[in-house]
Design a protein around this nucleic acid. Sequence first.
RNA 1: GCGCGCUUAGCUCAGCGGCAGAGCAUUACCUUCACACGGUAGGGGUCGCAGGUUCAAACCCUGCAGCGCGCACCA
Length: 895
Amino acid sequence: MPSKDHCWKAEHNMSEIPKAYEPQAVESKWYQFWLAQECFTADPKSAKPAFSMVIPPPNVTGILHLGHVLNNTIQDILCRKARMEGQEVLWLPGTDHAGIATQVVVEKRLKKEEKISRHDLGRERFVERVWQWKNKHGGIIIDQLKKMGCSCDWTRERFTMDADYSRRIAKVFVDLYGKGLIYRGKRMVNWCPVSQTALSDEEVIMKPQNGRLYHFKVEVDGEPGVFLTIATTRPETIPGDTAVAVNPKDPRYAQYIGKKVVRPLPAELPREQKLIPIIGDEAVEFSFGTGVLKVTPAHDKVDFEIGKRHHLGFIEVIGPSGLMNDLAGQELKGLDRFAARKKANEKLQELGAWVKEENYQNNVGFSERADVPIEPRLSEQWFLKYPSQAAAREVVSRGELRFFPDRWAKVYEHWLANIQDWCISRQLWWGHRIPVWYKGAEIKCQVESPGPEWTQDTDVLDTWFSSWLWPFATMDEATLAKFYPTTALVTAPEILFFWVARMIMAGFEYTGQKPFRDVYLTGIVRDKQGRKMSKSLGNSPDPLDLIAKFGADALRFGVMRSAPLGQDLLFDEQHVELGRNFCNKLWNACRYRQMQGGEAEGEINPALLSDEDKWILLKLDAAIQQINDAFSEYRFSEVVQVLYRFFWNEYCDWYVESTKAVLNGHDAASKANTLAVIDFVLSNTLRLFHPFLPFITEELWHGMGYSADLPATQGGKTIMTARWPKPLGQDFKEHYLLDESNERLVDAKHEFIVQGRNLRREANLQSGKKVKYVFKAVNETSAQDLEVLRLLLNADPLELDPNYQPPKGTPGVHSSLGDLFLPLAGLIDTVAEKARLTKALDKIQSEIEHINQRLNNPAFTAKAPPQVLDDHRNRLAEWQAKQKQTQAALEALAG
RNA sequence: GCGCGCUUAGCUCAGCGGCAGAGCAUUACCUUCACACGGUAGGGGUCGCAGGUUCAAACCCUGCAGCGCGCACCA
């Protein structure tokens, strides 16, 4: 171990155990230990069953944000639990090269630091500089994942630009080309004028915009004085119009089909060059705008299709960077497309063609990366017809590949049903260059260059074209044999189409199998007002700051506690604080145990078990069952909730408090037995918490000595391989004589104690002050039981008097164990107490009426199942007993 | 426009036919020898609205409203 263990002394010297848990030293110590012991390294030769996941590779330019924290904590939890269940676990990490993002980062840096552009360097030297940058800064997010405690197999870390991975991508391209699924064509694509590259449909975000709808008129050729009015949002594209279209069924305009109109722009052109045909096309809506559509085949997807149908000209008037070109005319040329819009509108006014303009809300596609409106643009690109579509659909529809939550299956299905070919080429320098070679008119598609006289295609592939191979291209043969298909995938729903769906298709196409069995889609992390985390809002806390302040375990716990399946996570630093508090509670519960000394994990003697001992063992059993059920359906927040309730409310609040009756006493055998129960419960608790809180549980596992007698591979070396708790089972329960009666009895005690404490509060007695109570017990009460009650009531003394006759005005409560009195007449605010009891009586009476109403309904008694009828009758009896007691208490007060 | 979710305590959410729940926040009291990063006890709800099915509805069905998301898109 690299640093000295100053946090916990094995010799149980309480003064040396800090009162509060201090995570920093503990976390770095154990992470180093796990790495040194190769605890995360997967062994393909292992005989254990395999459990595997691949990490959604974060961008190599990325830094850790809360989305990563959520996503990777979930993955780590699954891996750590799987290891404890005895599976051989592979969690394969890595990063992707993030074509556009990385290229932009390096370009900006060059510009800032050296005042040069990538063109100044040329392609080869620029790519070298990106590699330099990657080698220097690309590991940041990996280090951050380690800080979180992620148990990835770092010996298998992959990068999408690794040589062998890149080669695999090229081979896949060649294969798909050979199958005729990849083709090149001049199409209308989504062009990003900032990045100056084509984008796939998935990278375009539609956003509602407050724009203007401009109306202008054009004169019909040969019919002086006859004008058609056209509505458009983009007057700057008028110079690129090559037709005007109307619906052939539109009686207003059908007569003009075949005639021509005069396009107003560019104004300087001679009239003959501006004559464009009026065509009839069904795509034109009667009711939209004026019913007359200007057709700009080179700058609009729909117009492009119309242009092809009618063999129109394609006039490109906007260049790759979004600037108007020469064909746009002398007035617009050189202007940015938005400046040109304004200018074009002014020009229409000048020409007298302008009719009106109005506010108009429409949806405009934005480049996801650069956040500017994309420009539909005609260009030569590579496209892919998706392979293995049918297999990808069937595997989900047959339930062999499941989504959690399952509603994503419908979204997936819908996307696949309406799938469009994928534009896979990008006009970038950073990425996998397309393996296509040219010599004159000859083309070859192959991995290696056919020879020096051949030149390679200049485009690179979409980054997602590399990550869709991630689940198998990252693995060597032995690893594939053992760990593929992977067990689960955990990712954000935003990349369901980008990544998940494509991986499924690639999986079938290249391995003949699905790439994973379960897909868990996380929620989106938002701030507490429900807004998405964003840099510009500044509402995105740095997880590393949170780790420094509260500890990694606290961050993990806080995030997981508030992340229900299928819901977004509204992040608040308070959640992390709660996690910190929880760790501290766990720490102190263990500290309490350590302060008692004695043998660690002694044997439990069934004969010496108290009702409380049996109760906590039964609660542990129930918690384990609930936890395992919740885990099987990835309901993590429920797991956390159960653990929280079990440990804090059941174990700490009730059980630990009750043990003080024994541990402060003098019965050595009972003491030892209680300590054995405590150790049993704590050892199970630490193991149940380990996937969520890896660091503190490891520290306590060793500090408490629970690792001492175990084999190295089953918890002796690290809690990571300790056995995952199983429900206690029938044999265990029989051996230790555990049954429901223990549970009922202790529950009754708790109810009795709460009522007794409430009496104190009603009397305005300080909760810390010891007061005398009198207990009129129904049954025989053992000295130990009495001591538990005394302690938990903070009574001194607790008089046991079966024949007690309380003086008039003595407040008291009734329970199944007997009556409890607080003989302090005069200290009670009788008016307030009376009011409280009257209010309670009202409630009791309304409950009784409510139940009676039902029981008196013949239809109810005839049709309700007997069980329900019994429940109602029992409940009625309970309320009636309460009513009697409350009435008696009221009378006692009045007296 | 089509589709999918959500609407329960001040907040975040469980519950999905048979006594309306948790955590946080809040109120009062308490530095008691595991923990004030703590303890004890409270208060707080017409389960979005309107119909229907049922002995019984937060829960099932229908309609409506509001919020969110996805897909498509009309210039």
